[in-house]
Amino acid sequence: MSALTFSLKRRVDQRVDMSPLVCQKLLGLDPSDIGALELHNGKAKVRVDSLFDISGSDTQKIIIKNSYEKLDFIGKELETGEISIIGDAGAYLGLGMKSGFIRISGNTGLFTACEMKKGLIEIDGNTGDFLGGALPGNKMGMKGGTVLVKGNAGDRVGDHMRRGNILIEGNAGDYCGSRMTAGTIAVMGQTGKHVGYAMRRGTLLLWNGPQVPANFNDCGAHTLAFLPLLFKSFKTLNSAFSEPAAMFNRVRRYAGDMSEMGRGEILVKI
């Protein structure tokens, strides 16, 4: 059985809600049923087969070809299977994802992996603001799983994040780890201003020294035993994080945000 493939026929002007096209919702449907499903396109509704050429039949392995930045909600609440995206994706990629695997060859928009619960998202390109964050007004961001970004991430990475790993091979924008409740954000590149803003708990693991905010206190240099375990858990990833050269256990520890609970930490490689 070959992967169920959606090849975009034309780029529409209005945004498209792709949330019906997830593995668990397509289970048991044949390609003609899938083609007849309707997607929100701006204010209108359009049939899937009016936007995509459909081929293949394995609903647990979905490929979206010619994807572009207006395809929102890809992999929303994905429970099983895998989705590969060739091209870019819009906002809310993997929103509330419960399990499975999403891989994208291009860039993603705002709120990628927002409120994600489990699974793995691998992004070859860059991603927008609020990666792994909470929806506006909500108090809990990402609650589990792993997001790997090979490019750069926007502002507010892990806003209100509660659990899980966000791994960024490139740079992160401003307010990285803002209002974080727990979890781990690792950034190999540079970070912007106000790192760990209002952070309560959790770990920011940085390869390069940030502009440490005044409300983080320097706790000195340490060899931490949990870091080898953490790096070991990245071993299966297709990433620079899995390379032996990336591993270290010697860090400078900054505790904060002291204007909040102050149980968070910024660990900077030394």
């Binding site: 659990r163 727990a182 708990r201 770990t203 949990f226 953490l230 070991k232 858990s233 149980r263 930490e265």
Partner: peptide, 9 residues
């Protein structure tokens, strides 16, 4: 109260 939890794998 200074203990830190980590969920790894």
């Amino acid at each position: 109260g200074f203990q830190v939890s980590k969920l790894i794998s």
